[in-house]
Write a protein that binds this DNA or RNA. Structure first.
Lengths: 210, 210
DNA sequence: GTCTATACTACGATAGAC
DNA sequence: GTCTATCGTAGTATAGAC
């Protein structure tokens, strides 16, 4: 399918060079088609850019696959909530450390720092649902009274996982090992899980004596 | 100074569009000079790109300013080491949450995911020294026997801070408040400090019963 | 040291053949 | 639905005026 090939290449090109920097000619020729097919299918460069964001959002569905994210599905006892947090974070780590995430990571990070309509489309998908679910789960797991504390905790928990992708070269130098080694990622996952438990324990304690 | 103006604009342009995507004409005209002055001063586009990396590294000196990073200057008792970790992380948070870091952040993140010689130059500066120092400090603070555990912890600690820049739009949506608000950043700093203590405590405990 | 002038390649959009 | 052809604009590099 021409359209699918165009979108796959577009993720890489827009990720590497941005909306302005990327060239429709380059994308089209890499996809083995004529430039004018972008005009035909997406109306132009901006149209392809937004379609790429939608495509990324749809690709993220499998990260959330099998995870209960709907507010009414979330557990209401602390232990189960904590387990759900561990599950989501380990799923995210598997995704972010995988080779394939490298392709759309730069696209998303660019939108994170300089959001356009494309970010709205990405966040409207599994990403936003996962973020909302994590806040709820942290509230349940720690019995937090104010949501604000849970929100701050969620972004620090997420940061622990994000770093393997967003600061990949630094991680490689600090750890001095091949980041593609599954054993290393598993080790990092255990570290993150232990950190998460330590953080949630402390937040539970904070609740008693603030 | 023409060269300084050129470098400031180059950070933004290369950050937004990468080496290929950015245009020397665009950089030169935004800096109010002719394109050929880039050829004169830096030999061409690649030369300017590497000079931009050096410039970023030099700009990072003030993040490390006043922080003891030389191996022989590091404290050797756990409490002082822990305090030094807190100090470095809070300094990093102040820098990464500040408006000015937005400019070079994309340049660095791009190099993180797709490292070139430019990353070597950046990492050779304060960034690499800070990473090395953090590993040592975590070892001292927790009495860790193996360095590998300390290395993994350092990248998760760093991730907590990095997230405010690398996933800025997501943070804004999760927290539902203005990320430029200094009070919010202070609140986040307290959360990170508490998390860090919880993590270091747990690592110290892990050492006794592994 | 900074500029203009020039040569050549590549860009996005569009019209029209098939 | 996919292609080629063409338009006007913008890209890098280089040579040379001042």
């Amino acid at each position: 399918m021409v359209q699918q090939r165009l979108l796959e290449i577009a993720i890489r090109e827009f990720g590497a060079k941005g909306l302005e920097g990327a060239s429709t000619r380059g994308i089209a020729s890499a996809a083995g088609t004529a430039m004018s097919s972008i005009t035909y299918h997406y109306g132009g460069k901006e149209g392809l850019y937004l379609a790429t964001a939608d495509y990324i959002a749809s690709q993220m569905e499998d990260v959330a696959d099998g995870i209960a994210l709907r507010p009414d599905e979330l557990p209401d006892d602390p232990a189960a909530a904590r387990q759900a947090i561990h599950f989501i974070l380990s799923r995210l780590l598997a995704k972010l450390s995988g080779e394939r995430s490298a392709e759309w990571a730069l696209f998303i990070v660019r939108e994170q720092m300089n959001p356009t309509e494309a970010f709205d489309r990405i966040y409207a998908g599994p990403m936003g649902r996962m973020a909302k679910a994590l806040v709820e789960l942290v509230c349940v797991a720690t019995g937090a009274r104010d949501r604000q504390a849970a929100r701050l905790a969620v972004i620090t928990l997420f940061g622990q996982v994000l770093v393997i992708r967003a600061a990949r070269a630094t991680c490689a130098r600090v750890i001095e090992r091949d980041l593609d080694d599954p054993a290393l990622i598993e080790e990092l996952g255990r570290r993150i899980a232990a950190n998460t438990d330590a953080i949630l324990d402390r937040m539970t304690a904070e609740r008693q004596e603030p």
